[in-house]
Design a protein around this nucleic acid. Structure first.
Lengths: 187, 187
DNA sequence: CTGCACATGTAATACGTTACATGATTCC
DNA sequence: GGAATCATGTAACGTATTACATGTGCAG
């Protein structure tokens, strides 16, 4: 589950953290890639603690509920690393790159080989995808050709073409970035 | 609801279409931005027809369930246009740009002024966001500074910085594309 | 004196995914 | 013989969002 990975990953980086603080950090950092509500965070932290992947100290507060400061256990780190090391399952969807990058954000403590393997898988996948995307691009016209409402079709085709062209450029930029990043990890 | 907009939008472009065909088209075109399962599409089409936004003809088939070919009604077009014309509510999240572009894809039949207004709102928002993103960027170090696990911190900061730098470039590319597109619609 | 930040949580609802149900035809 | 495509749908499950519940302290 995505939320579990994010929670374990963030608690690994920020030990002794409360659910409330986690929410703030998620908003400010990870938030751009992933967001979660407190009503979702609290039950997950509880469960992860029950499963032995987190422990918490209770800090008494005045006028508000006691704080629970969570820290990751060795078991938790093992679970996290297991997730980080298993190959990313790419999907033919836009959000895929963001998820891929999100996972990457938590790899700080892994060794160079693991990171290189991860980056290489991304370069391979997105290069392939760019190729299929450019090939299948003819499909846009095919689709609109069958359409009965010809008037709309012309302007729609123009619009879709423009979007597609931007997708190519964005994908190219992403691949370049991955390659550049890989070079900085080269052994 | 997102799925309703996509269904109405696609049926407007492709009149007399079945749920099954819609699924195929969603996979091949919109699919990159938005995907839906048949189990989600069928009930929505049923509901949209009950609400008078769609009508359907039943085409008898042999050996398989009868086809239902849906077409959008005037009421449906009005609903769709209402959605398309109401200002896009930008969220401070990555997926936001994709949703924004998805909506743009269905604007083929709107007039230049509507499209220009939409593009301008995007240019304004993403330019502003790029600025805050670059400013808040200092936050990355602040966050890691408080961290107790110093060893991980260094490599994490390096990694996060790299990701942030890419985000800047990607956002810049997006703004450029929006501006370029706007120019082609300029009156 | 209204609203926000702090701090935890549960409950209800909406939405998305997987599995189930049926069955002919075609391609490997 | 098995998998994929066509064609519709329901049921169960998992995840995400909104609303509810409680209560202090501080700033505008």
């Amino acid at each position: 589950m995505k939320i579990d990975t994010v929670l374990l990953g963030l608690i690994k980086i920020h030990p002794r953290i409360s659910g409330y603080q986690l929410k703030t950090i998620i908003n400010e950092s990870t938030g751009y890639f992933f967001q979660a509500h407190l009503s979702q965070i609290y039950p997950r932290l509880k469960q992860l603690a029950e499963d032995g992947r987190l422990v918490f100290e209770v800090v008494p507060q005045t006028g508000k509920p006691d704080q629970k400061l969570y820290t990751i256990t060795n078991e938790g780190v093992e679970t996290l690393n297991g997730w980080l090391r298993e190959p990313y399952k790419f999907k033919k969807q836009r959000g895929c790159f963001d998820d891929y990058v999100l996972k990457f954000l938590f790899m700080g403590h892994l060794n160079n080989e693991d990171i290189l393997r991860y980056l290489d898988s991304g370069i391979a996948y997105f290069s392939e995808e760019l190729h299929t995307l450019k090939t299948d691009n003819l499909g846009v016209e095919t689709q609109f050709a069958e359409s009965a409402s010809k008037g709309d079709s012309e302007s729609s085709v123009r619009l879709w073409r423009g979007v597609m062209d931007h997708l190519f450029e964005e994908t190219e930029l992403r691949i370049e970035w991955l390659k550049k990043t890989r070079d900085t990890y080269r052994v």
